[in-house]
Design a protein around this nucleic acid. Structure first.
Lengths: 202, 202
DNA sequence: GGGGTTATGTTGACAGTGTCAAGATCATTC
DNA sequence: GAATGATCTTGACACTGTCAACATAACCCC
């Protein structure tokens, strides 16, 4: 029996994830169909169902993978900056991930899984852990530089919302102008820093 | 001929938009199918195609309507606050619109139209005008209160990104906790105000 | 090794989707 | 009153996710 004509694929689970990522990058979530994916993996339409409960589960698996990647970037950034908090670098790295992996980012934070679909237990855990780590790390970076009456966790969440908003605007095709995008993110950082340097609020 | 059995609907265009909004609110974009919509309007599957080129065009029309609503809210807010800029109120109003009309907001700013679909020329115009108005209005609110070296337009865009990010997080089902959401948005406003009150940046 | 169990892969089928083509009906206009 | 265009209908097609039933291979225990 030749290797090409064997009945069992042997590594379909991983192959599916890999090919799915390829299709995702090429045509977006809306262009990712299980049937095309199966064909691409050289397997029949329903074979993927033996490895993922349904399409939603597959997408959750992709998102989980992506969270691991972003997690690593965030952790590395938080470790590197160490005692000398560099929010600018942090934001740049975060934005870089989102703009270089727009479809993954969409999957991680978009309504496809969180609202329309049903996020896997696994995805929920990974995502929440990621949120927590992010918030804690960032609030550690901000420690002692906050305006009076500010809650470090809330500040971290608010500034994350800012960065996230920038990512969404870019990813969703609203800021088509790359130059504008950079200027705006630059200004966002400046804004955050200005807030941090102020010692008074009301 | 009875009114119920007449061949021509008479007001299908508007009826479609209205019923589409109902379906949108009830089941989201992903639950809005042209066939269900046609049935709901008491008309055959392909009748809508005589009033909208395709599904994308119908969704663009819905988004255009929604932009008009948000536009009005923004304009009213900017006029009301007048000489006494009240960013807090502005943010609250914006967030209110988004949380009360989540599906419309998704349509207005989501990838459904801007990335996956093809935004109508009309939608583009309305949207860009809305963006511009928003940015100009907000930057007028901020005038004279900015940290040195800040570009008012950029600040407006950056703070819009913050608000937009909060909206997305809520709408996409990531901040399920309403209480958290309010605290974070509160903090975001505080952050912006703190930045404005600071006279120095870097 | 042989037989039963489980994992994996296949074909067939179904309901649902957007959309095109061709024809039916009505409203309007010359 | 006939012709033209707007509106609506049925029929059809390709595509989607997913279930049921069956086929094949791998694995494990006696």
């Amino acid at each position: 029996m030749t290797q090409n004509a064997r009945y069992h694929h042997g590594d379909l689970h991983d192959t599916l994830l890999q090919e799915a990522n390829t299709l995702l990058n090429a045509h977006g979530v809306e262009g990712l169909s299980l049937r095309k994916l199966a064909e691409r993996a050289g397997v029949s339409r329903t074979a993927p169902y033996h490895h993922f409960r349904d399409k939603n589960a597959l997408l959750c698996a992709l998102a989980t993978q992506a969270f691991a990647q972003l997690d690593e970037i965030i952790q590395r950034q938080l470790d590197t900056t160490g005692n000398q908090p560099d929010i600018q670098a942090f934001v740049i790295e975060y934005l870089r991930f989102a703009t270089e992996n727009p479809e993954q980012y969409e999957l991680m934070f978009g309504r496809t899984l969180w609202k329309s679909g049903e996020p896997t237990q696994e995805l929920k855990q990974v995502a929440y852990r990621s949120f927590r780590r992010y918030a804690e790390g960032l609030s550690a970076l901000l420690q002692g530089r906050l305006p009076q009456g500010s809650n470090p966790l809330r500040v971290a969440q608010a500034s994350w919302a800012t960065i996230h908003g920038l990512c969404r605007l870019t990813i969703d095709g609203i800021y088509v102008n790359q130059e504008d995008m950079e200027a705006v993110s630059q200004q966002a950082v400046t804004l955050i820093l200005a807030a941090l340097n102020s010692t008074k609020n009301d």
